[in-house]
Amino acid sequence: MPVNVLFSARPEQWPVYEPLLTKGLSQADLDFRLATEFEPDQVDYVVYAPTSGLLDFSPYTQLKAVLSLWAGVEKIAGNETLTVPLARMVDHGLMHGMTEWVVGHVLRYHLGMDRYITVQDGVWTPDAPPLASERNVCVLGLGALGEAAATALAALNFKVTGWSRTAKDIPGVTCLHGTDGLRAALSSAEIVVLLLPDTPATENALNADTLALLPKGARIINPGRGPLIDDDALLAALDSGHIAHATLDVFRVEPLPPEHPYWAHANVTVTPHIASETRPTTAAQVICQNIIRGEEGKPFLHLVDRNLGY
């Protein structure tokens, strides 16, 4: 019997992914059928994006796994009709793109580039920045994306502290965890990068209390998830001067409404959710690898812990 793979994502993604998935599965000499429609009880795997509209998995009685095209799984992890393994997207293309974006904005802050790009006032002020080895950077979230970003920053000689909910060990990075670890990580952070998942436990990770832990003049970079930040608390910290600047790529409502105060704030840089994205070429490789592993009886890669939500 062929392996039936249902592609459940936006229609315009089908002509992009279909040849890539076909090529990857064909190379494994796998007897398969790939389509956007099957009878539910005939489906073995679902290649999934929340934008597809598929919400009820209960009719998929032969389903072996749901393979997400998204790194974030907060829109599906709590779905009670989904009882089979759920794998999130860990794509090295997405990882590299995120690392490049994070490193670029950390360097922008570290080198004070905004001062020379946005202000040309004719005043000669030769004020060189410190070396990276003298700059404290904190990465909140040490999953695949956070670890990659922290490792890249450490390779540039930044003093990198990483924080996660559970203990991690990353060469060149001071890894902290737990409530006390979070306080310690923030207390010396001149630049904070948010790469936590979006779960009930991480919502408003940066709030009035945690922002107050940061040194005066700290800068915030959020390419992770919008709900990680209490927007009102951040705006208050920016207005008071406690936080010098924030670069935000993700928001609770997207697109960010034109009337949102972030747009007009002098100390906020808004980017339109461009820090990174899933690259179809590399994402298809990840999907095919998991289908092949499933058919060989091997454990799926990048499984979501449903209790943690990521």
Rank of each mutant, 00 (worst) to 15 (best):
P11C: 00
L107R: 03
L206S: 02
L234M: 01
L131T: 09
D180W: 03
T36I: 07
P126K: 15
A246Y: 10
G294T: 04
V84T: 10
V16I: 12
M95D: 05
R306D: 08
L196K: 13
S187Q: 04
L25H: 01
L182G: 03
M89T: 07
V160E: 02
G122Q: 13
L248F: 09
A244K: 09
A212V: 00
V173W: 05
D114E: 14
V139S: 08
N290M: 11
T61V: 12
A184M: 04
A155V: 01
E37P: 03
A9H: 01
S187T: 03
A35T: 12
L86C: 07
I191Q: 10
D305P: 08
V270C: 02
A246I: 03
G162M: 04
E259N: 13
W101D: 07
Y109C: 06
V66H: 09
G53P: 01
L131M: 10
P257L: 09
E37M: 11
N4P: 00
T174F: 00
R279K: 12
S8W: 02
L303Y: 06
L131P: 00
G181E: 01
L211S: 09
A71C: 10
H245I: 01
V90R: 08
T202H: 02
Y310T: 06
P15H: 03
P223E: 07
Y45S: 00
L30P: 02
R279A: 10
L142N: 02
D305Q: 08
E12Y: 07
G309A: 11
L34D: 06
R252I: 05
F158W: 03
P15C: 04
G78D: 14
A152S: 09
S188P: 01
I287F: 04
A189C: 08
V304W: 10
M113W: 14
H245P: 01
L82I: 10
L235E: 07
G72F: 13
D169H: 15
L69N: 08
A49F: 04
L238E: 05
T174P: 00
E147S: 11
N267V: 01
V73S: 10
L6W: 11
I274W: 06
D231H: 05
E190G: 15
D41S: 14
E100K: 15
G217F: 08
G178Q: 14
I220P: 01
G72T: 12
L303C: 13
K298T: 08
S58N: 05
S58T: 14
K64D: 08
I220T: 08
N307V: 15
P171I: 05
G294R: 14
R135A: 04
A244N: 05
L256P: 00
L213Q: 14
V90D: 02
I220S: 06
D305N: 15
N222V: 07
I292G: 15
P258T: 10
D305M: 10
A275T: 04
G93D: 09
C288H: 12
D230V: 02
E37T: 15
V46D: 06
V106F: 06
L67W: 13
E18Y: 11
V253Q: 15
E296I: 07
N4K: 08
A264I: 00
V193S: 05
H92V: 06
D41R: 13
L182N: 09
D198V: 04
H105K: 09
P50I: 07
S240L: 00
A205V: 12
G181K: 00
L107Y: 01
G162I: 04
A208I: 05
R108M: 05
L182W: 00
N222Y: 10
F300T: 14
N136A: 03
N79T: 09
A144N: 13
V192I: 08
G172T: 06
A244Q: 08
